[in-house]
Design a binder for these strands. Structure first.
Length: 799
RNA sequence: GCCAAAGUGGCGGAAUGGUAGACGCAUCAGACUCAAAAUCUGACGAGGGCAACUUCAUGAGGGUUCGAGUCCCUCCUUUGGUACCA
């Protein structure tokens, strides 16, 4: 078969017939299959794209034949750093580079034959699109879910540029390889933490794989505990409180010291009272220098400085305990201060050993001279006044009651998830709909003036002082205040790449709407998404961000569903032939376009789904792929076996029925590899018989069609069917009146002795008669103590 | 460290607690061919036996069960994710 020719032929036919366009409000049941839209990079599509899209492709092609009104859309997540860097290097406008890349990738995706609905194509860098990204930001701002605060960012002192986490991996600048430092900067934050509890509880009702749910739960990081006020004693008198957060309020009697983060405000407040202030400042400076890199490398060696001049008082027993500054306590979590119970916490234990603090056990059972005793389940309280003799759980409950009653503390829930830092010092991103006016302060650009577009720039060199390149475009920065009409300046930072992808699935439902992000009735028809397939790398970012935005839009009445994705499926990585991750430096990258040139798109599609379980990572193989090519060739030659029989041969019915149910079920559950092997087996069976009817051939091609649509369509036409497979109906099971035979294994003590062929659903007595008649098993049957009989499966003689 | 997933032939991988190794690759043999390729047929976990057959095999060790690759416990290894979270 001339793959190049027939693939082109059928792609043109489908396009002409608009075979894959989704119809708004159609009476058929809707089916929305979503894949993660690609970043249009200059390199073109990766083999991973082919795998990611092939699964949904197969599912959607089947669903269409099953009578669903299928939406399988695609678009471009086109803002981002690689394009900007390319623009800097080659002095090409990002807009132009993006358009070129999109054109190229589109051509490639079409060459694979994906049945995308191209009429709904979207592009996050299109002004008509990002107008609504800005609009959503405005709504978040109006509802008080946006705030500006100082935070640390990665900064390269040599390039004088702020870097993203991706650009500063290993603590080294991506461009010049010099050491990255932390720089304080004004950052826009979205209050995703306000949605933490709902993002967590919403997971319970979603059909996501467990590892995805667990990943999100872990990221949200809910912990329940208590806040407790310790007294601060300065110059011998109690004059202030120190609020701490703990999950182990049961151990309050075991507190032997306190620790505060180097940035804790109490330090500055009492600087005059702290006799070793210089030492504290020096330690703080040292801690600040620690970059992301240091924290990841994290030698767990505890460092810290004891504060001289201020002590804390345990509110329960009025005991004085020293306070330390140490960077193992973070200002960004809890209250930035902790009570330390070295007897029952590993970190506190380590710190106490190093700094010679007391270790006081309050739970019986451990040897606290050797290590912290952290078992919560066992153990009984000791040395703890009114808690003595209670279990840890009882003690926690009693302690919270006590704290609340006496006004020294309260129950408190904390989340590890941080608010979403939402700005980047970049050109190629959505501008904020924000201006700064001397008179009115921070002002939102009104909806009628959206979108705020990007100015044209000639040079895309990185700007200095860690500012966005946009800061240099004066005629753009200077504007009038929408409130008072006076002079104002635009926000020059742009939104992160996650912004545009946080709501794109909504836009597919109504991609050309100019008056709102999408018509509500269309969202009611299409939403929520039936299946969303994508990679594990998006579990804690994109998948949480987009759920957050959708939930927010639901709250303000824009979107009719609270959760956007009913079901999530995940894809396993395609590794290089050497078993390593594909990378340019290892030289093990497989270009899908090369494979298409050599084998054709259908073979590529078949092999990528056949090579392993879809969710598992698996190495690519340039030799194994030939098995899929041989299979397609065999299917083509199968036409020579077609006889003149009208209908389906009776002796073939059960084979085809078996294939129909297996392929259908396997596609639905993403077990594409076994669906394909089932078709291979069926082909082998047909070859062994040496004949099949025309109708059977078509049935086979229909089952093959979702995987290898070009070949299937071509062969269907060649054998003389006028109706295209793309317009046909998915095969149903045929009536089967034949007597089915099954094989029953006969075991003695669980070991296989023989295999009997009997009628399906044969009774125990009939089967045992055969067992008695078989010389290999009859002797065992006579002395059997027990006989286990499972219909159609097994007989086990226990002797 | 913690969380999750996974360890099955020479290789990629199949197996609702019920015949381990489906399907494919590679290899070997045969057919076709002047020959090669392609194709078709067959063999293909390891040991023992002329054979019918038989024993051992799913990372290691225990356990539950009539029966365990599958369930439980301990351990080892690999791969992801996450990280001084109080």
């Amino acid at each position: 078969m001339d793959y190049e020719k027939i693939e082109k032929k059928w792609q043109e036919i489908w396009e002409k017939e608009k075979a894959f366009e989704a119809v708004d409000f159609d009476k058929k049941p809707k089916y929305f299959g979503l894949v993660e839209f690609p970043y249009p990079s200059g390199v073109g599509i990766h083999i991973g794209h082919v795998k990611a899209y092939s699964s949904m492709e197969v599912l959607c092609r089947m669903k269409r034949l099953q009578g669903y009104n299928v939406m399988f859309p695609i678009g471009w997540d086109a803002f981002g750093l690689p394009t900007e860097n390319y623009a800097i290097k080659h002095n090409v406008a990002p807009r132009i580079a993006t358009d070129e890349n999109i054109k190229n990738i589109k051509k490639q995706l079409k060459a694979v034959g994906f049945s995308f609905d191209w009429s709904r194509e979207i592009d996050t860098t299109d002004e008509k699109y990002f107008k609504w990204t800005q609009w959503i930001f405005s709504k978040l701002y109006e509802k008080g879910l946006v705030y500006k605060s100082k935070a640390f960012v990665n900064y390269c002192p040599s390039c004088d540029v702020i870097l993203s986490n991706e650009e500063s991996q290993g603590g080294v600048c991506d461009r010049c390889s010099s050491q990255v430092v932390q720089k304080e900067k004004e950052v826009w934050f979205l209050k995703i933490r306000e949605y933490a509890d709902r993002l967590l509880s919403g997971l319970d009702h979603l059909d996501f794989p467990d590892r995805v749910k667990e990943g999100q739960r872990h990221w949200i990081g809910k912990s329940t505990g208590a806040e407790v006020d310790f007294d601060l004693k300065v110059d011998g008198c109690v004059c202030d409180k120190l609020k701490i957060y703990t999950t182990r309020c049961d151990t309050l009697f075991g507190v032997t010291f306190m620790v505060v983060a180097p940035e804790h405000p109490m330090l500055e407040k009492y600087r005059n009272k702290i006799s070793n202030w210089d030492e504290i400042v020096a330690y703080g400076e040292e801690a600040k220098k620690k970059t992301e890199f240091d924290r990841v490398q994290m030698n767990k060696d505890k460092t810290g400085v004891k504060i001289e001049g201020v002590v804390a008082v345990n509110p329960l027993n009025k005991k004085e305990v020293p306070i330390f500054v140490a960077d193992y306590v973070m200002m960004g979590y809890g209250t930035g201060a902790i009570m330390a119970v070295p007897a029952h916490d590993n970190r506190d234990f380590e710190f106490a050993k190093k700094f010679g603090c007391d270790i006081k056990p309050v739970i019986a059972g451990g040897d606290v001279d050797k290590e912290a005793y952290t078992d919560i389940a066992a153990g009984v309280m000791i040395n703890s006044d009114f808690l003595n003799g209670k279990t840890v759980k009882e003690a926690q409950k009693l302690m919270i009651e006590y704290l609340t009653k006496n006004g020294i503390g309260n129950a408190k829930t904390n989340f590890q998830m941080k608010d979403w830092a939402f700005n980047r010092q970049r050109y190629w991103g959505e501008p904020f709909p924000i201006v700064y006016c001397d008179k009115c302060g921070t002002v939102l650009v009104p909806e009628k003036d959206l979108p705020v577009t990007l100015p044209h720039m000639d040079k895309f060199k990185p700007s200095k002082n860690g500012e966005s390149p946009l800061a240099e475009v004066e005629e753009w920065v200077n504007c009038t205040c929408p409130k008072c009409g006076g002079k104002a300046k635009r926000e020059t930072d742009t939104m992160p790449q996650w912004a545009g992808s946080s709501w794109y699935f909504l836009r597919y439902m109504d991609p050309h709407n100019d008056s709102c992000l999408a018509d509500r009735s269309k969202m009611e028809y299409w939403g929520p998404i039936d299946v969303y397939n994508g990679g594990m790398e998006h579990v804690t970012r994109h998948l949480i961000y987009s759920r957050f935005w959708n939930m927010f839009l639901y709250d303000i009445g824009v979107v009719p569903f609270e959760e956007p994705y009913k079901k999530r499926t995940t894809i396993g990585l395609v590794l290089g032939e050497d078993g390593n991750k594909m990378s340019k430096s290892l030289g093990n990258v497989v270009d899908p376009m090369d494979i298409i040139k050599k084998f054709g798109a259908d073979v590529l599609r078949l092999y990528i789904l056949f090579m392993s379980d879809y969710e598992c990572p698996a190495p690519w193989s340039n030799t194994n792929i030939s098995g899929c090519k041989r299979f397609l060739d065999r299917v083509e030659r199968m036409a020579d076996l077609v006889d003149n029989f009208d209908g389906v041969h009776e002796e073939h019915i059960s084979k085809f029925n078996n294939a129909i149910s297996k392929v259908t079920a396997d596609i639905e559950s993403f077990k594409f590899n076994t669906a394909i092997s089932c078709l291979m087996s069926l082909a082998n069976d047909i070859y062994a018989d040496g004949y099949l009817s025309k109708k059977e051939y078509r049935l086979f091609l229909q089952l093959l069609y979702p995987f290898a649509p070009h070949s299937a369509e071509e062969l269907n036409e060649r054998v003389g069917f006028a109706e295209h497979l793309s317009k046909s109906c998915w095969p149903n099971l045929m009536e089967d009146n034949s007597v089915k035979m099954v094989k029953i294994a006969v075991q003695v003590n669980g070991k296989l002795r023989t295999v009997l062929t009997v009628q399906e659903n044969a009774g125990k007595d009939d089967v045992l008669k055969l067992v008695e008649g078989d010389e290999k098993t009859s002797a065992s049957l006579k002395i059997a103590k027990k006989i286990v009989f499972v219909p159609n499966k097994i007989v086990n003689l226990v002797v």
